Amino acid sequence: MNIETLQAQRQLIVRQRIRLMVNQYEVLAAGPDGGEGELLAYAQQKRMAFREQVTLYSDDTKQQPVLGFKARQVLDLAATYDVTDAGGSAIGLFRKDFKQSLLRSTWHLEQPGLGAMIGQERNMAVAILRRFVDSLSWLPYHFDFVLDGQPAFSVIKKFGLRDKYVVEIHNPGLDRRLVVAMAVALDALQSR
């Protein structure tokens, strides 16, 4: 993944691959027509891990890591996740707000030098339905992240057989690596 190419993106697509023992994700640039463009990153997450950790690579050969996120605590419903670059330097962090997430999922995301963002499901009715009717977990949802009352980015889960997300970036100062980590986490960690 070329960092300059990633930083230039205003729209990304995150697509989950279906596998038996792992969650796999492809992060793609959005093409000029809104379709899928070049592969920017590939992620794999083991299911049922005691401490959540996801590493994103430049492609599915998993030879070159580009970023990752890891829980600070083991098995914590409101764990904080540190997001780091390929060299292990901090990019930012995110955490789920357990109390507010009982009805509508709420996440806090921080980028050094930019500030703290809050992301929340847009539609309360869909959020409540997804909580109380397990068979409706496939329902599309929409997360809006705001910074100082202004839209920072949004993550929209599309309707389909496989999980697919469109990420719209509104704030040009956002580190796209942090946005990618949050978008992958919304799928990988949302049901916890």
Rank of each mutant, 00 (worst) to 15 (best):
Q53P: 05
A43C: 13
Y81V: 04
F50V: 04
G37D: 07
R72D: 11
G35D: 11
K62M: 14
A79M: 08
E36I: 02
D59N: 13
S58P: 00
L56N: 04
A41N: 01
Y42F: 15
D76Y: 05
Y42H: 03
Y42D: 03
D59S: 02
Q53R: 15
L40S: 09
V54K: 01
A78L: 06
F69E: 05
R51G: 01
T80R: 11
Q64I: 11
T55I: 15
A78D: 15
M48N: 11
A41L: 14
R72E: 14
E36T: 08
R47S: 12
L39D: 06
A79T: 10
E52M: 06
L75D: 02
F50E: 01
G34N: 02
A41P: 11
V66Y: 06
E38H: 05
S58L: 12
E38W: 06
K62P: 06
K62Q: 15
A79Q: 10
L75A: 10
L75W: 12
L56K: 03
G34L: 11
A79N: 15
L56C: 12
A71H: 02
E36L: 07
L39Y: 04
F69Q: 07
P65Q: 06
E36D: 13
S58R: 15
A41Q: 07
R47D: 11
Y42M: 00
Q45F: 05
Q63I: 03
D76K: 09
K62N: 08
R47W: 10
D59I: 01
G35Q: 07
D60P: 14
T61H: 14
R47A: 09
Q73S: 13
E52R: 09
Q53S: 13
E36F: 00
V74A: 08
T55W: 06
Y42C: 00
T61A: 13
A71C: 06
T61G: 12
L77T: 12
L67V: 05
E38F: 02
A41K: 07
R51L: 10
K62A: 12
A49Y: 04
P65V: 05
L75G: 02
G68L: 02
A71S: 15
M48L: 15
Y57K: 08
D76Q: 03
L67D: 07
G68K: 07
M48A: 14
D76F: 08
F50G: 00
L39V: 02
F69K: 00
V74R: 09
T55H: 04
Q45G: 10
G34W: 04
Q45E: 14
Y81L: 10
A43E: 02
F69Y: 15
L75M: 15
R51V: 04
E36M: 07
E52P: 00
L75Y: 03
Q44F: 04
Y42V: 02
R51H: 02
A49G: 05
Q44M: 13
F50N: 06
Y57L: 03
L39S: 05
Q73W: 13
A43V: 04
V74M: 14
Q45D: 13
Q44C: 09
E36H: 08
L67I: 05
A78K: 11
K46C: 07
R51T: 12
